[in-house]
Design a protein around this nucleic acid. Sequence first.
DNA 1: GCAAGGTC
Length: 915
Amino acid sequence: MAGGGGRPLRALNVAEKPSVAKAVSGILSRNPSSGGLRVREGRSRYNKIFEFNYAIQNQQFHMAFTSVTGHLMEVEFEDRYRKWHSCDPVDLYHAPVRKHVPQDKSDIEKTLEEEARKSQWLILWLDCDREGENIAFEVVEVCTRANRNLNIWRARFSALIDREIHYAAQHLIRPNQLFADAVDVRQEIDLRIGASFTRFQTMLLRDAFVLDFTTDDKNVILSYGPCQFPTLGFVVERFWEIQSHEPEEFWTINCTHNSEEGTATFNWMRGHLFDYTCATILYEMCVQEPTATVTNVRQQEKLKYPPHPLSTIELEKRASRYFRMSSEQTMKVAEDLYQAGFISYPRTETDSFSERTDLHTIVQDQQAHSIWGSYAQRLLDPEAGLWRNPSGGGHDDKAHPPIHPTKFSSGESGWSQDHHKVYELVVRHFLACVSQPAIGAETTVEIDIAGEQFAASGRVILAKNYLDVYRFETWGGSVIPTYTYGQQFTPTTLTLDSGVTRPPPLLSEADLLSCMDKAGIGTDATMHDHIKKLLDRFYATKDSSMRFTPTKLGEALVMGYDDMGYELWKPYLRAAMESDMKAVSMGTKRKAEVLEACLQQMKACFVDARLNKGKLFEAMAVFFERSNRSNGNEPAIGDVVRRCGLCQESDMVLRRKPDGNFMVGCLGYPQCRNVVWLPGSVSEAAVTSNICSTCSPGPVYMIQFKFRRLEIPPNYNVDHLGCIGGCDNTLRQLVEICGTGSRNNSSMPGRGQGHTQSSGSAQSNSRSQGAWQTGHSSTSYPSQSSRGRSAQTQDAAAEDGESSIPCASCGTPCNLRTANTAANRGRKFYSCQAQGCNFFTWEDNANSGGTVPRGSNSRSASNPSRRGGRGRSNQSRGRANDVAFMSATGEPISGRCFVCGDPSHFANACPNRGR
DNA sequence: GCAAGGTC
């Protein structure tokens, strides 16, 4: 293939990481005309330079192949904005930023410059995703600074496979500026939002409260980030859901039957009822006519499929579930194994193997293992029939294959327990996903007792297949006796049992990863970082079962923003940014346009949040004692009025002195002693986002004042939006009239301890309300399972089935039946036959047309507003579902107690109620 | 001292 083409040119090739530089060089140099692969050191000890000869489209090249280590550059504010007290955090929305190579990457930069000077071509082998494209342009910037005449090309490849790499080298394209632009947008927005909110909330709250979770509360950082905060939001939201759960009693009928073959447990196909009386009526009917008739026997073959090939998130989730290993630790160990060559690249979204991957060879490598080696041998034996080409999960990052073993090991001497575990998981997972599914025979038996349906099922595993090697998964099964259609028997036990709805569990690490994945928070390579950040920042804790609870601090911050009405703790902001980035990368939106729009929105949000900082204070006060530090000399950043005209370096901020008086002083104190005194009659003052139109140099933010009525002349207003820039005559006159001196009574109401606490607890209460009203799911998890439910209708009841009405809840026919309880013996009722529908009404009510479904009997996981409706209309009567039946207008039309028939009370208060 | 994204 090495044709003519004249004198060889020199090409500098750059990969995103050393391993790719090595792998691609290895592939491209694997022919006699390459002159062999030479390696030499670069200036960075990690990033070697590989050299060989190669022909591209018949042009001979001398290739120098080196690498970077991820991003070469960082985006950062200009120096004068770097110090926290150097500016008002709101300035960070327009402060100049620059992209530069940080100190620890300067050796890589030097290598690139030196190599670029010697080269005619630059070929970019960065990962083929948006971040990779952005890194490509960072490399271009460094290289073209050294050599303006470079001919710049991009190699597009999705796997480190010979054919793919050669194809990429022969079909070079130009780098895609739009992809890189999208990342520039994200970087800048992340930095500006993160830095502004972090500085704002840290400086606002850190010194105002006694943060009792650390001994070093002066240095604690209350960070905000567009990924870490929604992650915290998931944790807090689940916590609130648990807190607001009200346990509710329900009732279910259980039936067992012992025979010579064993015991069968039949579950009620209605699942459970929340109405004790209804359950009792149905139960008593069963007891009076307990003969069970087998109505259906179903035998089915069921398959349990092996998992898809392993992506990063799945690895993290499974290691957490199987080994209780944190996602951070899993990634650390996986990185070690990758570096040592035992597993493939561990940061991948891909969960299907390319057709070109030689899966058999990977299995062959594992044949020697003392434990799973024999399974690997069976897999390769065509007669065993165990092999199955893996089914993919539909994700492909176009850069890396799923995680799989790349080298056999029976365990290395330097490995920790965690290394053994992660390697074993990767190997077993791989072997599982090229295996046949497990096969089971499932038997379901349905019976009828007095018109009520019950079902029992059993499973026998016929072939374990992949379960033989994937020891982390089980497929529970039990054997039930044989039954035949029409068979009749008397149950061994028939019981009416109670249960209580339970709240959902706290979020596990695997749950949290799923939430983040679904909402697009973070990437496969960073999700574990965001989770760890919650722990590092004291926002959440993780218990021994890997479940997350928000700390007081985490809950307070989310509560504060939520009370402001912002969804900054929700994933929507990130989702919107992600969609904007996509638009930039597709060219449908321009970089500058998206940046400006997003920053403008976020700035408005920031300014508004600062005005509403009282909400954050109140939320914090629910959980923490106020400290007296904030009343001292610590400046309250966030109250910047203008830049100091005296020192020209720092900002003038609104402050309240210990004596209760307000002043506007320079943050440069004590070097700069510039100060503007305010009238002594000020009772409240807050900097607004309004800018004075006359005073210069601007901006000069106006201050909203409140004066004490008795201390100012009657012709002055108590409320005044004023400016300290010199234009405000009212303010000047009031200083003259009232002076700036201290007053005897400097204590004032408002943020006092008592007030804060009471409003705090109100906050706390309104929290659960708010959570429900904004439509959070209110899933209740019954403590008993409700298996066997489906939408199909049952056969007509054995008795009274001649009459039916359509169900007012679901439309299915409700058959007429007869009650057998002491109080209602002989009374007819309609009961919905649809499984899962609990509609029930007396015949006389139905005939009068005045029935509605019973309130909470028909409640389900998709009914989030139940709490809002509860307790208001039925406050005086207790549980809503005990209020007999109501007309369409909500009026009770039957005031009788179900249990004893007494009209003076309802069933929940019945003295005869009980079991 | 701040973000999130690469990677060592």
